[in-house]
Design a binder for these strands. Sequence first.
DNA 1: ATACACGCGCTTTTT
DNA 2: GCGCGTGTAT
Length: 751
Amino acid sequence: MPTTVDHILSELNPPQREAVTATQGPLLILAGPGSGKTRVIAHRIAYLVQHEEVEPWRIVAVTFTNKAAREMRGRVVAHLDEQASDVMLGTFHSICARILRIDGNRIGLDRSFNIYDDADQMALMKRVAEALGIDTRAIKERAILSAISHAKSELISPSDYASKTHDWFTEVIARAYERYQQMLAENSALDFDDLIVKTVQLLQDDEHTRRKYQDRFLHVLVDEFQDTNVAQYQLARLFAAFHGNICVVGDPDQSIYSWRSADIRNILNFERDFANAKIVLLEQNYRSTQNILDAAHAVIAGNKQRKEKSLWTERGAGEPIVVYEAYDEQEEAQFVADEVAGLLRSGHDERDFAVMYRTNAQSRALEEALIRAGIRYQIVGGTRFYERREVKDVLAYMRLAHNPYDLVSFARVVNVPGRGIGDKTMEQLELWAGRLGLPLYTALQILSAQQAGDREHEAAKLEPHPLGTRQANALAGFLEMLDELIDVGAKNNVSTLIDGVLERTQYRKWLLASADDDAEAEERWANVEELRNVASDYDGLAAGHGLVSFLEDVALISDADTLEDADDNGGKVTLITLHSAKGLEYPVVFMIAMEEGVLPHVRSFDDPAQMEEERRLAYVGMTRAKSRLYLLRSFRRYGTGMSTHNPPSRFLRDIPSELITAKSAVSEAAGAPAERTEMRYRAAERVRERDVSDAEAGFFSGGERVRHPRFGEGIVVAAVTKGDDQELTIAFKGEAGMKKLMLSFAPLERM
DNA sequence: ATACACGCGCTTTTT
DNA sequence: GCGCGTGTAT
């Protein structure tokens, strides 16, 4: 039921109300965590439509993820019912893709461009490097792509870049950048950054299109503005240039994407570019307890480059923050599982919990512990469905059906399932196509005609293909199938196309045969079926159009989008990176590995600016918590093979002790003093000859009590088996403190 | 052309 | 502890 204007405004506090009703001219909303930013945007849209009678289609609102866009749409629907669907709402990337499909032809783009994801870009860059003779041992494809992405996000074109090279590295990049763009164009493909860059270019170069959108967009809203890059900001300005009603919402303290070229200066530039900009501060927090806010503030206050903004809440102090020191990451995960189990018994639901970490790899120990405890969980990101081999294969066929010039997709599936078209065949085919100056797909058609022996066909006049009959026939067969699929894709719905692909390629048979075991086969086929399931959602759309939408959505899906809504995930604990957690909230939050080297990450140690970003990351994590916040660290952590001991994160030290309840598995178990020394014990002589069998040595395990002739009584904190040896970390009572011992030469005795 | 086995290097965060 | 690329055998 649509709400009234009075109703819209009555739900807001005074600054929020101002943020909603200041509709004319530029507006910068600085919104702290939990300050009702999303609701302000939704209310603003509703207010524009209901109070100012703005037609919904003249409003464009940009969010950071598709999930955020969906949520936003949901809220707008609550106010406006079906009118909400006319608001242009999406991520920068999805909005740009939509614009380019419609108007990209005006700058020479093929309407049926494919969108290249990370893996596709890598595949293409490999080709670029090979063509240019770049030694990818010296400069990795990743590094080249990253440099190019950086350039694109600052709207630096290949020729701009080439004119500013200053060393060997940038010269290589310049050549690679130019060729890369050329090859993308030949494949009718755009990468993520191109979606933005080309849209900016379209609006700048083509007056007709510029007028069309600038006239249309009466109101422009940008969420998570602190995480936009220069190109995105430029785009937002272009959108708003005619009517001048641009509203950006952000929080400099939550800027955590500078590595993706997000430019925190955009906020400062906004005030400069729009001198008359109104600024509204949202400081009342509706999410967290005062303890959590105070702790988070103590952490973020450590940053020098920031504007002071202090959050307050009407909620009470709440529970103290729990800081826990675990033995090792297993025990750390176990602690999380135990706490969750305990809180579940006292009335919490699984969906109330999130466990956050710095790197994806850290989810593993947590998963194991949660499985052991029988607690249901969902992982955001990590092993991504759309990166599975079988899913990418089927998608590649669909992408080819949409755009047969897509060489990356072509190369992926030309011999999957195997049809006798190997690397050598492809190489000769590509060389020949190159000599003819034709795209591979066109060359293939020539080859097919030549193979059919049609002397009248113009193909007969061109250089004959260099391939043997066997290979040529295999290729002609592939082309025939591809053309059928193109036809199926153009005339039918998406699931019919998938069925066509699976049927014609006998993909199931091949997939099942190629799996190592039954379980893998089953899982892989289930993934294919799931893909078909997802695709069938697009069956209602007109033929061809469904395929475009499907491929586009799949390409632009983000990690955060895979998060199931808390309301209907059937109760699961969420495991999520700190980055993906931005914008979310949970009653109970665990942040693990609060250690020097992890958070803050080692790679930020030598750069003060990056260190400030690590601090913001900690801030983002902490402010996700509504009622309970746990900060964990582990005495020992396994890195690449070796185990390490990390000192507690500097961010922990910044939190006033009166806000904290501290617990330690290590000192409690050992009864050791809080101050511990760590030293490595080395035997003068290593007795390899002695056969240390498991039975004889009696390998130790965590928790066992032991005695050492010199250090006395202790408890095994961690035990790592290394071949015949076992490395033990033992907390000794009293003065001796914490020691690491190698079992094979450490004279230990069980107690 | 395919299948398998071994070794190397690497691991921040993602639209 | 992992995927990827290379090398070798069939």
